[in-house]
Amino acid sequence: MYIIGENIHIISSKVKEAIKEKDAKFFQEIAVKQVEAGAQALDLNLGPRKKDGEELFPWLVGVVEEVVDVPLSFDTTNLAAIEAGLKKITKAQPIINSTSADPERLEKVPLVAKKYNTKLIALTMGTGMIPVTADERVNIAVEQLIPRMLEIDFPVTDLIIDPLVLTVSGCQEYCPELIEAIRTLQYVWDPSPHISVGLSNVSNAVPNANRPLINQVYCAMLMGVGLKMMIADPLDKELMEVVRIIEERDESTALSKAYLGISDKIGEMEEVTTDQFDLDDPEQKAIWKTVQILMNQVIYADSYLEQ
């Protein structure tokens, strides 16, 4: 699993504060921490930064590249800020996060990606409603995103398609759709583009205490259909453990068997069933309840674990 560390994110009040103070040490520490925890790239999500993006991104690139060698992912809608940051890159091939099928963005962003030889994350959404069914998402990739890359001769192998994780709290019925979108997307083009998702989005608007479990179980499901790249929190030790269990096919504990079982069943297009879990074990029971909400079999509620 190729993990793009998500922790430099404007939603965090500490990050906001560090931007304001131009606190280089803060960003260096959080960068090193993520890489040491297993991140193979770092997402830099600073929001649109309309006023100071063209100054802030280059500054941050310099700060972060002083301490880590991994690719940096420019996560903003501000294309000028991205370009300013890209000029400053001296180490690994960076990532632009992101374009979409919005005609204006799809026109401009891939050209920048090509000019600076970056990888490019492309979201399966256009200008209208976020597409929700697996087919709609795949169609946007096949009919709009990939053709644009071919048109400008941008290598499809540098393209990273993000079929959009939606939150289980409010968009529950589409959680299984994403699984199917990922399953299909791997076979729509040869050579295949990469596929990546923003995992933590699945637990947006979920109370903090329940977020890690939902992220972990969804991760096992998505790995079952072949997900090999994601923007996620590498500091979530339990999440990293789930990744390890599935990659190494670790069957040594009841818990690892439970996670592996979820991943395998989803991979085989079979239903995950209650008999795969020891319901006397509270941890496995919670995992089973989480499977049911993520597969849209039981309606999500904030207190779903207490039901």
């Binding site: 409010g170 529950q172 509620a301 207190s303």
Partner: peptide, 15 residues
């Protein structure tokens, strides 16, 4: 008009 919140409220009332 929200299935998640309807269900959550029932859990709270029962609890």
């Amino acid at each position: 008009m929200d299935v998640n919140l309807s269900k959550q409220l029932n859990i709270l009332i029962k609890d």
